[in-house]
């Protein structure tokens, strides 16, 4: 696995706590059920910058991040950003309620242990992957990550064609 440099960002256990790894391997493709029906295939977003967020409704840092993702999707969607949420909840019911409550504006699918394993194991939440327009993993953020960090990575990736 092409894992690069890990570094802790700021203090541990706070909203800005995250572990970031620069990676350059292809993002494993998957097809998963959307919470509102239908299927989502990750590779259908090739050409866009994708922020793939593994999260769950009961995960406090995930809940804190959601409004920032809604803002980022609104801000950069027109420039080619697509956020995709992968819920690690056991059932879709609380996810549908959460989706409405938080006015989420990006697709959410129900994750599986297999997909988590393909991404190196989602053994803690949240974990977010930034994927470039070529479908390669640019960065992996483990734990709550400051919105400014995502903003910086996204703008960098959006500039590449």
């Amino acid at each position: 696995m092409g894992v690069g440099v890990y570094s802790y960002r700021q203090s541990r256990g706070t909203r800005t706590d995250s572990l970031v790894a620069k990676q350059h391997r292809p993002a494993p493709d998957f097809t998963l059920p959307l919470i509102d029906g239908g299927q989502l295939r990750l590779s259908s977003y090739r050409g866009k910058v994708v922020l793939l967020d593994f999260w769950a409704t009961w995960c406090v840092p995930c809940r804190d991040e959601t409004p920032h993702f809604v803002e980022l999707q609104q801000k950069y969607g027109g420039q080619g950003l697509q956020i995709v949420g992968v819920s690690m909840d056991d059932s879709p019911d609380p996810v549908r309620t959460f989706y409405q409550q938080f006015h989420m504006n990006y697709p959410v699918v129900m994750g599986t242990a297999d997909v988590g394993g393909a991404y190196g194991g989602v053994l803690g939440l949240p974990i977010a992957f930034l994927i470039d327009r070529e479908g390669r993993i640019y960065a992996k953020h483990i734990g709550a990550t400051d919105a400014a960090v995502f903003d910086k990575d996204i703008t960098t990736l959006l500039q590449t064609r």
Partner: peptide, 11 residues
């Protein structure tokens, strides 16, 4: 559990 950092674990 281990879902989240210790101070955020709801379980």
């Amino acid at each position: 559990c281990g879902c989240c950092p210790w101070n955020h674990c709801p379980n």
